[in-house]
Design a protein around this nucleic acid. Structure first.
Length: 412
DNA sequence: CCTCCACAGGAACTGATGGCGT
DNA sequence: ACGCCATCAGTTCCTGTGGAGG
């Protein structure tokens, strides 16, 4: 069958209404109208610890842990929406909810500005002079912080700051040496009108060890842990989505469903991944004009997602990082010294100035963090101590991704 | 038991960028 | 036009170290 014929067939298939997907949106993790299953306890706890805010007194700060795809953010957003809606009805005193994700804001400054703009601070200079505003750049961190606190006091806001992936922020804080987290947790001492509550969401259970002990004591007044979903729970979550997403409840074969939840359960019980997997599999099945989703659709979806992830990360790398990946693949013994030599040859071939070895080890560590390569420190006695790298991405994938880039012509 | 290799990885610094107010 | 401020890629200089071989 030619490509054109296949497309025509598919068009007919879709026109005849034989498709299996009814509502694609349901197959996205963050699609809210479906229930958040197995999180009753956690929802209750969060609501309880936030309840003082409804009585106009200061609730305790809250720290929420859980691996990715355990529904932390979803649950928090749901509860905050509930509180806001309820508050809007009674309209007694203003509650301001502010959500930021530290991953979206790569810098401390950006994060604070994001918080500020959600409090209603404008980034444009206002016409009247006595109005507060917050420029997107140019101020010192402490000035931005003071403007935010001033706004809270002036408006008597009961503010809840939700900081997602707060571990990331903690890293930023320790890198820059600025004490923002400490100041945030203690800001209440400066606020006589209104309040400030902090909800931190973290993927990393150990991140607290990296914090200032003063911050820990006030930040973790309450802690809630979202446990990983097991395969059985994942299956129930998927079943719930299947009910809404597909034309027919039986569109997903039992064995495929089991495989899907097992594959996702193996990787830290990540519901996001389970749902993504199902979505990609259903798209593949539809393209094959199959009436049901079979296990092999799940398998090819799994492979496709793995490869897609590798390709997108690879593409996002800088030239030197790409060169280093190539060097690791071309190396024979995989030691840092050898990789660096190969890398230098590559640089000479394409007449690029090579980076220092120090920078290269740093880049290699960064590549290791993102999972592109894995390294192991080995000691060879008199031959010194080094690190041995292996690439987790295949040579073919790298070549296929980089071959369109003319600069790599001579290297692959 | 000591030495000494071949790096790992921390700290401090530089120079460029980009945007602010005055 | 100038001084500030934050950020980032990259450099320079440095100390630390596991264990084979003497």
């Amino acid at each position: 069958m030619s490509d054109d014929d296949h497309l025509k067939n598919l068009l007919n298939f879709i026109k005849q209404g034989k498709t299996i997907i009814k509502d694609r949106n349901v197959l996205h993790f963050s699609y809210l109208p479906t229930t958040i299953l197995h999180r009753k306890n956690e929802q209750g706890k969060i609501l309880q610890s936030l309840s003082p805010i409804l009585k106009h007194s200061r609730p305790s700060n809250l720290l929420i842990y859980g691996k990715p795809g355990t529904g932390k953010t979803l649950v928090v957003k749901k509860i905050l929406k509930l509180i806001i809606d309820d508050n809007a009805k009674e309209n007694k005193f203003p509650i301001k909810l502010v959500y930021t994700n530290s991953k979206d804001e790569m810098t401390l400054y950006g994060l604070l500005v994001s918080l500020g703009s959600q409090l209603g601070l404008k980034s444009q200079k206002p016409l009247t002079n006595n109005e507060d505003w917050l420029p997107k750049t140019g101020l010192s961190i402490s000035m931005v912080f003071n403007i935010i606190i001033k706004t809270i006091i002036k408006n008597k806001f009961n503010t809840v700051f939700v900081i997602d992936e707060i571990d990331n922020l903690a890293d930023l804080v320790s890198k820059t040496g600025k004490d923002i987290l400490y100041q945030l947790t203690r800001a209440n001492e400066r606020i006589d009108q209104g309040s400030l509550t902090l909800i931190g969401i973290s993927n990393d259970l150990t991140f607290k060890e990296r914090l200032d002990p003063r911050v820990i004591s006030s930040l973790s007044e309450e802690e809630i842990i979202f446990t990983n979903y097991n395969a059985y729970q994942l299956k129930e979550i998927l079943l719930d989505r299947i009910k809404h997403a597909f034309v027919d409840d039986n569109s997903v074969e039992e064995s495929a469903l089991n495989l899907c939840s097992a594959l996702a359960g193996r990787e830290h019980g990540d519901a996001r991944r389970a749902i993504d997997l199902l979505r990609v599999a259903s798209e593949i099945a539809e393209r094959e004009q199959s009436s049901t989703i079979k296990p092999h659709h799940i398998k090819s979806a799994y492979r496709k997602m793995e490869e897609d992830k590798e390709i997108t990360t690879l593409k996002s790398y800088s030239l030197h990082e790409k060169l280093l990946i190539l060097s690791v693949l071309k190396a024979k013994k995989f030691y840092t010294g050898e990789i660096y030599t190969i890398y230098k040859e590559f640089c000479k071939k394409i007449s690029q100035k090579e980076l220092t070895q120090r920078r290269v080890t740093q880049l290699l560590s960064e590549l290791e963090l993102s999972g592109m390569v894995s390294g192991r420190i080995i000691s060879q006695g008199i031959h010194g101590r080094t690190k041995k790298y292996t690439s987790s991405i295949s040579y073919e994938t790298v070549v296929n991704t980089l071959k369109n880039d003319t600069i790599f012509y001579d290297l692959i």
